[in-house]
Write a protein that binds this DNA or RNA. Structure first.
Length: 216
DNA sequence: CAGTGCCA
DNA sequence: TTCG
């Protein structure tokens, strides 16, 4: 007869606090990952991933697309949310059902009830791609949290302070992890370090990040 | 106003 | 590597 040696041990903590109002939900979407990846495929078939230009005239290293009522874009004009894809002039693809559900569930698990995102930014990181420290501040209502889903290769997330000069903490994020931040942490600087080369059985040589926001 | 990039 |  086999004994369950772990039966009496406390369950592995699945939730980690980064700061007040910022949590990592480890493996929160593991079982819905393939469905999420199919959603990414559907969206990017219509609104292709593209590397956008910063207002300063530089090309971002992460390729981006969007779905939902609003999409985040950057070009020479600046950062903004807009309802249409500048590549096609068409509305962004609708947010797949599973996207909205995952975002709501994760926000709820982190203590933010009734989160209804109207924007989902899809970031694709290939080896060498990164995202410098920045604040998400193009949204109207800072009472609404940010929900960030990691799929594929692991990448180091940096979570800093309300000022750029505060040293960020490094948080390695793996496939299936979700980060939720809001409240006093809503405007904290954050970013990701360069992606290291690797292979993931579901995504190959890249990482996807879904960032859910209430833009309006 | 620039800017999730870049330089010193 | 940290800084603005």
């Amino acid at each position: 007869m086999t004994q369950d040696l772990f039966a009496d041990l406390p369950e592995e903590p699945r939730t980690e606090t980064i700061t007040d109002g910022a949590l990592v939900l480890r493996g929160f979407v593991s079982e819905r990952a393939e469905e999420l990846l199919r959603g990414i495929q559907q969206v990017t078939n219509v609104a292709p991933l593209r590397k956008m230009q910063t207002p300063g005239g530089h090309t971002m290293s992460a390729a981006m697309s969007c779905c939902g009522k609003q999409g985040w874009v950057t070009d020479a004009t600046g950062y903004r949310y807009q309802a249409s894809d500048p590549l096609s002039g068409q509305p962004w693809p609708a947010m797949p059902e599973v996207f909205a559900q995952v975002a709501k569930d994760a926000a709820e698990a982190a203590g933010f009830s009734n989160f209804e995102p109207d924007a989902c930014l899809i970031n694709q990181y290939e080896p060498g791609a990164k995202m410098g420290l920045h604040q998400d501040k193009d949204e109207l209502d800072y009472e609404q949290p940010i929900v960030s889903v990691s799929l594929g290769l692991s990448q180091v997330f940096q979570f800093g302070g309300l000022k750029r000069n505060e040293r960020p903490v490094n948080v390695p994020l793996a496939h299936g992890d979700v980060v939720v931040w809001g409240g006093p942490s809503r405007l904290r600087y954050h970013g990701v370090l360069r992606l290291k080369a690797g292979e993931h059985p579901l995504t190959g040589a890249c990482r996807y990040n879904l960032t859910f926001r209430r833009a309006r």
